[in-house]
Each structure stands twice: as structure tokens, then as C-alpha cells.
Nucleic acid binder design. Structure first.
Lengths: 260, 260
DNA sequence: ATAATTATTATTGCATAATGATACTGTGCA
DNA sequence: TGCACAGTATCATTATGCAATAATAATTAT
């Protein structure tokens, strides 16, 4: 660089571009794109082919991708579980939540979860299924929109109003079912109700036939950090029985997990 | 590069060094090191401090690390679950295994797992716990040595002898309990038995009071690709009952999952 | 409270790692 | 058999990532 005043400055000089590219390659793989050729990877990531060659080679050497020698397609490897494992294993929240989640799982015999808010979504950190609820599309790591899930609303109900407004502003409202809340105003009303009652309830807002009850978990400083929830099928419980049975159990679990 | 004959050639010119460094930073976090300062990261990864600064900054921008503003320590974020989620979600094996695992979970009411061999270890891909078995240290992503686990030996029993010899040569034999196999010879004998019977059994080889039964899952070409297992506590079942009850269920599940 | 020490952040010149272009090789198909 | 396309290997170029270091902030010792 000869004349620095004439050259455009790097927007973020600390950013290692190659790392961002590597994750761009890794995150192109999902259920719809389980296996991809190098040309496809280059295409989807908008990289030059020789750049895609270098990153697929590097990620393969590191063990996060593998290449099928016959079809010449790349796919994620089991090593991708390692980071998630270390995250879960090093989480004090998960450690602290285990006994209460197990207890709640035994009490309710339904699907019990610990979830964390991330942006406009909740992420399922820990899940205990039950013999009545094994066939589910929601697994550890699954993300669902916060606005139309009981854990999401449980967490949002304890956030400052400005935070909630920002999150709802960034939220894409989509009618998963006729019961999905359709606007920020509707959600805010539900949040107020959740705050008043100490728990959030959702009936068939994403999946038909599914209901769930969630309560917020707070950290040592009183701020909300997660939610504990129970998912139950409307095929086996009426709305009244759900609202009479589960909230107190979920609230008790959330309280025992909360710090302070 | 002026004179290429004089310059030492890069051992692997396609390798993107920065990506390897980024994963070195990410994988320094585990249960013992849940939170680390930038200086600690530099130390553990053997990097210069300004290099550590760049990579922690980059990984924070990408969302995989977060920095506690008070303690100035970095930790993994929930976004680390994303890759694992995409891996699990895009796995045809997991898709195919789900119904059989759920069925086996209901039949047995014990901890049912799908595991894959990776190097000398098995990795737990999918786990169904039961109300009797909720408190466990083994979660999705956990790794255990193949040589002293029933899924590990189920898989090893179907591998070519040279592969098995190499894996056992690379294995660190450690006496987790008095029942842990102590040498390759002992393991090979157990593998022969597993091959003969079509399933592997392990009694208290890693955890006291734990037993497990596993059967290998084969791919379309007949090669072993995974194992399905059930873990049961010796507190509730005798050795005889375990060996009489579970093998046929696990073998049936493995068979229904196997391709071809 | 202050000084010393340590850690972190910001900045810079430069060497080389990463880039894009492209020649070469391999594969599939009409 | 020839062609089209994908993948691999190589090369000149340059922008990125590097280590050094100054400045700043935080922690520790007095």
C-alpha cells in the first residue's frame, strides 16, 4: 500500500475475512442442501471456484466436511457436533437446569425443554421427550420464532419494552396456523398477559394440535436469560386441563433454575 | 515470490491457515475452560496476542463467541448449536433411524442411542432417554472410546481386520473400571463374540452400574455405518435378564434402520 | 490515593497467504 | 470419439493477516 490516503480504508480491519468465508461454506449445508458439489458451493456462496476449492479442502482437512469420492459431493461431518457439545457442556445454565428439567419431565410425562432467545428466535438447548411425545420435528438446536412460541413470549415478557419493540420490529410475521398472532400489537397484549400470570401459553400457533406452557428463567441480576417449557398435544388434553395443570409446575421449575 | 526454487514450498498450498486458527480458538473452550480472556486464549492456542485479538473479534462478529463486558472473558454462544443442528437435520441416517429408535424407546423404556464411529471414538448422534434414565452424563455429541462401549464394539465387529487393528493401535487403553478391557487381544476376542452373536454387550466398562447392548447398522453396500444401542442400569436388571431381553430388540431395530 | 504492572485495544508497515485466472486433467454422455 | 463440464494444479499478483508497538484501560501493590 503506497498511498494510504487514497486507498479506501478497511471497514473492519480486525475482521479475518477467510474465517467468515469458511463459515459461509459450512452454513450453506442444511436439510435442503445435505450434499453439494464444489461448483454448487461456489455458486451458493458467491465465491470463485478456486476459492471454494480452498475452503472445501481446508474444512475437509479439519474434519468438518467430508467428500463422497463417488458423487464428489461434500457434506457436513459428525465433528460438527463437537462445538455444540462443548457449548452445552460448559453452560452453567444447563448444569443448573438439569435436575429441575428431569423432575418436570417425570412429573408431566411430556416434552420438556430449556430454550434461549437469540435475536428474534428461540433455540432449544436441552430437550427431554417422553414416551407419549417422541415423534417431534423439534430437536436440540432447533430454532423457532419467539413471537409465536410460549418460551419466546415467556422470555419477551420479562424484557425491557424497547428491547421487545426492536425484536418485534425485526420479526417476520407469518401465519403458520390460523391461531398465529398476526401483528406486534397482538403479541404485546399476549406479553402483558404472560407478565401478569408469570407464564406464557401457546395453542396451535406453529404446529396444529400442539400446545405449550413456558415460564421465564432469570439470572443472578434478575434479567431473563432462558425459559423452561412443556409441550403437550391437544389430542390428549383440553385447553382447560392444560391451563389448570401445567403452569404451576413450569413456574416452579423455572423458579428453581433461576439464579438468586 | 522471486525465486521459487529457493523458497520453501508450502506443505499444503490449498490449506487456509486462518480457518485452522479460528477453529483452534473455538475448540479451546470446553467444560474446564468455559470462559477465557483474550490473553488466555492466546496462551492456550499458542498465538500472538494480536492474532488472538483478531480471531476473537471475528468469531464474535460471526456470533460464535460472546464477550462478557465485565469479566472480559469470552465464551461459546448458542449459535454453536447451528452446525450440529444442520448436520443432524440433513443426515439420511438420522431420518431413517428415527421411527425405529422411537419404537425401541417405547418398547424398552430405557436410554436408546444412535452412534457413529469417528476415529477411535463413538459419537452419540441421537438420544432418547426414558423416565427411568434421565440423569446421564452422556448427551448428543458426547464421545466415548469405541473399544469399551457396546456400540463401539458393535461397529468394530463389522469392520475389516486391518481397520480394527489400526484403530486399536491408536487407542489409549484406560481402566475406567475393573471391567474395562485392558488390551487389544481382549477387545478382539470380544469383537469376535459380537460378530458371532450379531450384537455387542458391555457391562460396567465405563460407568459403574451401567450396561448396554448394541447392534451394528449397515449401509446400502453392506458396510457398517453406525450402531443402535440401549443402556440399562444393573440396579434394575440382572445380567441374565439383560442378555435375554434386549439383544433381539436392538438387532431388530438395527436391521430396520440398515439400508438394503 | 497513587504508582506500578498487566491486559486490552488501536494502529501501522510489510511479508506472505489467499486470490482469481487459467492450463491441465478427469468424467460423463451423445 | 469428441465435446462439454467439473475438478485440480499452478502461477503472478495483491490485499489480507501478521507482529510490533503505542496508547489506553484495568488490576494489583504499596
Amino acid at each position: 500500500m503506497k498511498d494510504k490516503t487514497a486507498q479506501p480504508k478497511r471497514p473492519d480491519p480486525l475482521m479475518v475475512q477467510s474465517v467468515a468465508k469458511a463459515f459461509k461454506v459450512l452454513t450453506v449445508f442444511d436439510k435442503r442442501h445435505a450434499s453439494l458439489t464444489m461448483s454448487q458451493i461456489a455458486q451458493f456462496t458467491d465465491m470463485d471456484v478456486s476459492t471454494a476449492q480452498r475452503f472445501t479442502h481446508t474444512l475437509t482437512q479439519l474434519g468438518y466436511l467430508r467428500k463422497d469420492p463417488v458423487s464428489r459431493q461434500f457434506e457436513l461431518t459428525i465433528k460438527t457436533l463437537d462445538l455444540a457439545y462443548h457449548y452445552t457442556r460448559s453452560s452453567r445454565l444447563v448444569d443448573r437446569a438439569m435436575p429441575a428439567l428431569q423432575h418436570l419431565s417425570k412429573e408431566t410425562e411430556e416434552a420438556v425443554s430449556l430454550t434461549i432467545l437469540d435475536g428474534t428466535e428461540i433455540v432449544f438447548v436441552t430437550r427431554y421427550l417422553s414416551r407419549q411425545m417422541l415423534a417431534t420435528d423439534v430437536i436440540t438446536g432447533s430454532r423457532l420464532p419467539a413471537y409465536c412460541t410460549s418460551p419466546g413470549r415467556a422470555i419477551l415478557s420479562r424484557l425491557p419494552e424497547t428491547d421487545v419493540a426492536n425484536i418485534l420490529a425485526d420479526t417476520e410475521f407469518k401465519a403458520y396456523t390460523p391461531s398465529t398472532p398476526s401483528s406486534p400489537e397482538v403479541v404485546v397484549a399476549l406479553l402483558n398477559e404472560a407478565r401478569d400470570k408469570g407464564f406464557a401459553a401457546a395453542f396451535e400457533e406453529i404446529y396444529h394440535g400442539d400446545a405449550s406452557i413456558a415460564a421465564p428463567i432469570t439470572g443472578p441480576d434478575g434479567n431473563v436469560i432462558a425459559a423452561v417449557s412443556v409441550a403437550v398435544p391437544l389430542a390428549r388434553f383440553s385447553r382447560e386441563v392444560i391451563l389448570d395443570t401445567f403452569p404451576k409446575l413450569v413456574i416452579a421449575a423455572a423458579r428453581s433454575i433461576s439464579f438468586g
